[in-house]
């Protein structure tokens, strides 16, 4: 059996951080209340003082805090990202999760002892790309994009000098992390530079005839959920669209569905994955408590040689559907 993998859990608020730690997280990732992280949502995230308290809470219970500074600074606005890095280091975070080469370079040069992880937003999926980040910036762990099979992950493990982290639960979006411009196209707000996918200020839900629900982003209709049909997020990549070549509206990019790799935990451990990440900093502490507890139990079961059982998490999944995605097969749709 490989070394004990780390359970990496989301926290959008200080209360969620405490709940994640109490539920068995080995580490918690979070971000500041600005564009430096990819969940820059209203009412979410941490002030510097809240992060200071959160770090103390986590460290006092043997857990780590990872700070996501994983967006891409636009030209002329680098100071916000620089300040975020400096503040995170000063507060004693255990690692900074970076995506941008400039941010990685600044952190590595200015704070050479600070541990760096490579965000999924960097979209590094080949050994060559990962080795570049390790060599140039001393990256110690890469969060892999959700486009690789377990056997591909296993082969990458043997070709890179750093740890591997994979998502095991949560959002299963468009497989272009750090490259997706759909929100920018629809709203003028950038997922990658402003940290907002489908800004809530431009989301509208409208009742339609027959008990249906219309979701809109800016001027674009995203989906229409009929009465009783389970709903998904109002993101362009999960939208259902009409085209001339199809009679019925269809999901052109992705479907409203969440990733759940609970049944594959043992396989992933055997492949050499060092850390398992739960997505969902935008979710509630109810979600955090339940999912973290479930995966804590699942990972512990694997380590004890038992069959992992994360229980029934379907009610927490988008559209109340789950998938093992590309981890199982490249033909998941």
């Amino acid at each position: 059996m490989s070394a004990r993998p780390e359970l990496v859990c989301p926290a959008g608020t200080p209360a969620a951080l405490r709940d994640a730690v109490d539920a068995g997280a080995d580490s918690v990732y979070c971000g500041f209340q600005n564009a430096t992280n990819a969940r820059n949502f209203p009412g979410l995230n941490f002030t510097a003082e809240e992060l200071r308290t959160g770090v103390a809470y986590a460290h006092g219970r043997g857990a780590k805090v990872l700070l996501a500074i994983n967006t891409f600074p636009p030209a002329g606005k680098f100071s916000l990202w620089r300040d975020a890095v400096d503040t995170g280091v000063a507060l004693g975070v255990d690692a900074i999760i970076v995506a941008d080469i400039g941010v990685a370079s600044y952190a590595a040069r200015t704070h050479p002892t600070q541990r760096l992880h490579l965000s999924v937003q960097a979209s590094a999926s080949s050994p060559e790309a990962i080795r570049y980040y390790c060599r140039e910036f001393g990256v110690k762990r890469v969060v892999l994009p959700r486009i690789l099979t377990v056997s591909e992950i296993k082969s990458i493990v043997s070709e890179i000098p750093c740890e591997i982290e994979t998502f095991v639960f949560g959002n299963h979006g468009l497989m272009l992390e750090g490259r997706c411009s759909l929100t920018n196209y629809a709203t003028g707000v950038s997922t990658n530079m402003d940290g907002v996918c489908s800004p809530a200020a431009q989301v509208r839900f409208e009742p339609a005839e027959g008990g249906a629900l219309m979701s809109r982003l800016g001027d674009h209709a995203i989906d229409r959920f009929e009465s009783g049909e389970k709903a998904g997020y109002p993101t362009i990549c999960k939208g259902r669209y009409t085209t001339r070549c199809r009679q019925e509206p269809y999901y052109a990019f992705e479907e409203p569905v969440s990733l759940n790799l609970g049944p594959m935990l043992a396989e992933l451990v055997r492949a050499g994955v060092n850390a398992f990440k739960i997505e969902g900093r935008q979710r509630s502490r109810a979600y955090v408590k339940r999912v973290v507890s479930a995966f804590r139990g699942g990972i512990d079961a694997v380590l004890e040689g038992r069959e992992p059982n994360v229980g029934d998490l379907i009610s927490l999944t988008e559209g109340q559907k789950q998938t093992e995605g590309a981890f199982k097969t490249k033909r998941w749709r």
């Binding site: 209360a15 709940d19 949502f41 209203p42 009412g43 800004p199 809530a200 200020a201 989301v203 509208r204 839900f205 409208e206 009742p207 629900l213 959920f225 009783g228 049909e229 389970k230 709903a231 998904g232 997020y233 409203p256 935008q282 979710r283 509630s284 502490r285 109810a286 979600y287 408590k289 339940r290 009610s315 927490l316 999944t317 988008e318 559209g319 109340q320």
Partner: peptide
């Protein structure tokens, strides 16, 4: 903090209208 708002929304038990940003906040 015992039920997840997104999950309740997915199940269609939660209906939100108007300013979504205000609701999220």
């Amino acid at each position: 903090g015992e039920a997840d708002g997104d999950a309740v929304f997915f199940a269609r038990d939660l209906v939100v209208s108007g300013d979504t940003e205000a609701v999220v906040s």
